[in-house]
């Protein structure tokens, strides 16, 4: 069994009487891909932002590899690119590397640019990038500090079909390289291509967990439909 990477216990997010998340227990193991599914307003993004350390839960605990949760261990890729348009691709990565206090951010930037196939546009302003290129640079940005866990918040938003397919294959290869992934999406077909495991959120709670080793689209769609009508 793989060792637990990120452990969530009883995560609750509430303000006043509005409950965004009600007691989520979740475990993500090293190298594993997890899909977090659910309709709009189910609390998927809130959960992911708590996992990323962008928001604090009202109650409950997070552990990273058995220790304290640390933003420095986690990479985050959202539907926004988090990039600075005035900086070149390389400068964006160097800047991010310095945020994460890397010893040699320039070397790391060049390495990532090569890995994401951006070496020849390294000195162009990120503001001029196409959505697909910006997304690749954004992946490089998320990996700057070599995190063992990547959190993906609706990364397919705004991508055309070829770019989306490229993103899927890139994420698949990152997964085989040993990255753990947590993907928030409302698109079941994309989740099925990537994830080994899925949780389905509904109104801030886990409605179902799909744990089959071989997760296929049809099975996932059935579970999703069942979870959503079950309590309606």
């Amino acid at each position: 069994m793989k060792s637990p990477l990120l452990t969530l216990r009883g995560i609750e997010k509430r303000y006043a009487s509005v409950k965004a998340l009600g007691g989520i227990d979740l475990e993500l193991r090293a190298g594993e891909s997890l899909a977090i599914l659910g309709p709009n307003g189910a609390g998927k993004s809130t959960l992911l932002r708590i996992m990323a350390g962008l928001a604090h839960p009202t109650s409950g605990t997070l552990e990273f590899a058995g220790g304290k949760h640390d933003r420095g261990q986690i990479g985050y890729l959202g539907h926004s690119t988090l990039l600075y348009p005035e900086l070149s691709a390389r400068e964006n990565l160097i800047f991010t590397g310095r945020l994460y206090r890397l010893d040699d951010p320039a070397a790391r930037a060049d390495q990532l640019l090569a890995e994401e196939g951006l070496a020849e546009v390294a000195d162009r302003r990120a503001g001029g990038f196409s959505r697909g290129m910006a997304q690749r640079l954004s992946i490089a940005r998320a990996r700057v500090h070599a995190p063992s866990l990547l959190l993906l918040d609706e990364p397919y938003t705004g991508l055309d079909e070829p770019a989306a397919r490229r993103l899927t294959s890139r994420l698949q290869s990152l997964s085989t390289e040993g990255h753990a992934l947590a993907l928030v999406t409302h698109e079941i077909s994309r989740a099925a291509l990537l994830a080994e495991r899925a949780v389905i959120l509904k109104a801030g709670s886990v409605a179902d967990r799909v744990e089959n080793e071989a997760l296929d689209e049809a099975g996932l769609a059935r579970a999703y439909a069942r979870a959503l009508e079950g309590e309606a």
Binding site: G10, A16, S17, P57, T58, S59, G60, T61
Partner: peptide, 13 residues
């Protein structure tokens, strides 16, 4: 942050 805070303790009132 309290771990086992029940709803009645945290929630209004």
């Amino acid at each position: 942050m309290s771990k086992n805070s029940s709803h009645s303790e945290l929630g209004p009132p």
